[in-house]
Computed example of a mutant assay.
Amino acid sequence: MFLKSTVFTGFVVAVISLAWGISGLMNTPPCPYARGCPAAPDAGTRMMVLFIGGFALAPCFILVVRRLDWPPLTGLPTGGVIGVAVALESGQTLGYWILAAVMVVTTSGIAVWLRTAIRSISVSPEPVD
């Protein structure tokens, strides 16, 4: 039970951190200079959280697939919904709405796809007599 709740929480936190990192990087204005622009004050923090969130998803996926246990996958859509709130809190322009829609569709699609794959692996066919 502890492992299930840990993986669920890992999915939620990783997806929220991805949403926060991506939405923060969308705030940077376009650069008028050819040789580069100074970064936003919190760009380094957002990039670090973005990479940590991405790398945190790998152990969660590995644990779900190795244990053939799909209920912790519900952390993906849960994190996606909370991530939508985080992204839309950063801004309300078209780009943020696109990010929100892609996040919900992607997290839900991955969860359904992995659940179907895990169920097909874990259900062994009956031997024919």
Rank of each mutant, 00 (worst) to 15 (best):
V104A: 00
I22Q: 13
A58V: 15
A58F: 13
V86N: 07
L88Q: 15
T45V: 12
A56P: 04
R119M: 06
T45D: 02
L57Q: 02
D69V: 05
I62K: 15
P71W: 13
V64W: 03
F55M: 13
R115C: 01
G80D: 08
A40F: 03
F55Y: 06
I121G: 01
I110P: 09
V7R: 07
P30C: 00
M47P: 02
A39Y: 08
L25I: 08
A101H: 03
P71N: 12
S90W: 06
P38S: 13
L63V: 15
L73T: 08
C60H: 04
T9A: 15
A111V: 07
G109T: 12
L57M: 08
F8W: 15
L76W: 09
T6I: 11
M26T: 05
V15Q: 06
L68G: 10
T93E: 05
L3C: 01
A85M: 07
T106A: 07
E89C: 05
T74D: 00
A87D: 04
F51R: 12
I62R: 15
T28L: 12
I16A: 09
V112D: 04
I98P: 02
M1L: 08
F2V: 12
A34M: 11
V128S: 12
T107C: 12
V128M: 14
V13C: 10
Y33T: 10
G53K: 04
A19R: 00
L68Q: 15
L76T: 07
